[in-house]
Simulated scan of single mutants.
Amino acid sequence: MDVKRAKDIYSSKEMFSVHLDGESVWIEHVDEQNGMATVQVGSSPGNTRTVGVDRLEEQGY
């Protein structure tokens, strides 16, 4: 995924299926300048990771 798409998903009111290494994630923040995203893995709010947006995959896109 690229930074623009990650930002679009983050800003959208719609729900999108996004995965990181096969796990479902929610995008919580996108750092456009560095090409990074903070994501919540699964349903646990405390389980967050900051990764390159190129590691994120939109399912069904």
Rank of each mutant, 00 (worst) to 15 (best):
D54E: 10
T48E: 13
K4C: 01
E57L: 10
Y61C: 09
G42Q: 05
S11I: 01
D2A: 06
T38P: 02
A37Q: 07
S17Q: 15
V3K: 07
L56G: 09
K13D: 11
D8Q: 14
S24E: 10
G52P: 08
L56Y: 06
G22T: 03
Y10N: 02
E23C: 02
S44M: 12
G52W: 05
I27Y: 07
M15P: 00
F16Q: 08
D21V: 01
E23P: 00
F16E: 12
V3N: 03
G42N: 05
H19L: 12
R49M: 07
F16L: 02
R49D: 01
T48A: 10
V30G: 03
R49E: 12
Q40L: 08
N34W: 05
H29N: 03
T50N: 03
E58I: 10
G22S: 09
V25N: 01
M1C: 08
S17Y: 13
T38K: 09
G35T: 12
V18E: 04
V25F: 02
L20H: 04
S12M: 08
L20K: 00
V41K: 11
L56P: 02
Q40A: 05
D31C: 02
V18M: 06
P45S: 08
D2H: 14
R55L: 11
G22Y: 06
G52M: 07
S11Y: 02
G60Y: 12
D2K: 14
I27A: 08
M1S: 13
F16S: 14
F16I: 00
S11H: 04
L56I: 06
D8I: 05
Q33A: 14
T48F: 09
G35L: 11
D31H: 06
G35F: 05
